[in-house]
Design a protein around this nucleic acid. Structure first.
Lengths: 142, 142
DNA sequence: GATTTGCTTGACGTATACGTCAAGTGAGTG
DNA sequence: CACTCACTTGACGTATACGTCAAGCAAATC
């Protein structure tokens, strides 16, 4: 039996997972109820594995990107297609392309917003520099 | 009196604006109630100008990016600062920087998601090509 | 056994973002 | 005047995403 180095835990209680990822237990249960997570059970108690943890990370990222839980669920479903079924692969490809298109549209919005904000920064910094020089001239006059 | 070329309208009713931008009148009224829009009035009837239209476009983009209406309102407030007040400019700069940081974080999430989706595409297309070659070989065998 | 801790479910509440509906007003038309 | 259309406000409803609370169970500890 080999000694393996200390590794990340393979199993988590709901509290451990919630604490580590900065999310409430209630939210995790809610995501499970919505079909986004499928933890195993020890009796009635939920047991989360590494895959569940990774899946929850994807959920949280989708939420941060502004997607509804239903949309996030669809996204996760993309990973669950059966690779042996040609028709499913075709369908998956179409869905992935659609989601790529949605994200690319969002990216355009995002770039535009960033561009405008950088414009504001430039203007404000220009205005502050201008008034700072004026103030500096006043000080020399004293 | 010069003849100016046909231009975009300067004033809109709520129905015109809603129809043009693909949003319901109810939503527009809601945004006004939340302080995001401030149309003028002709009696009791709302009158939207070009600035209102532009502002609504910003609102809609913020929503698409996943921000709450409160967050969108904060974003719009960035444009309303008084340029003659140095302290407001400083505060504005800090707020803009914070918003830039948030958008950049979102951009990282977005890039990551796109990267993963492109991976899926590559895998699926690889799998389809593999099975297509197999199918092609069968056809030649007939 | 009593207490504590950590988990469960179920139900109701809150916040956000509108949708729907009803009642009312004003302007234009026949 | 009656009707139609386009607007208004206000109120209640719906959907989403949880938060809060209560009751219950299991395991560990004193």
């Amino acid at each position: 039996m080999e000694h393996s180095p200390p590794a990340a835990p393979e199993l988590y209680t709901i509290a451990q997972l919630a604490d580590e990822l900065g999310v409430t237990q209630r939210a995790i249960r809610f995501y499970e109820a919505k079909g986004l997570l499928k933890p195993q059970r020890l009796g009635t108690q939920r047991v989360f594995g590494r895959r569940d943890r990774a899946r929850l990370l994807l959920v949280l990222r989708g939420i941060r990107l502004g997607f509804s839980l239903a949309e996030v669920r669809e996204y996760l479903d993309l990973y669950d297609a059966d690779p042996t079924k040609r028709e499913q692969m075709r369908l998956l490809l179409a869905k992935v392309q659609a989601r790529i298109a949605a994200l690319e549209a969002q990216q355009r919005d995002l770039r535009q917003a960033l561009c405008e904000l950088h414009d504001i920064v430039a203007q404000v910094e220009g205005a502050l520099d201008h008034t700072r020089q004026t103030t500096g001239a006043k000080r020399r006059a004293k």
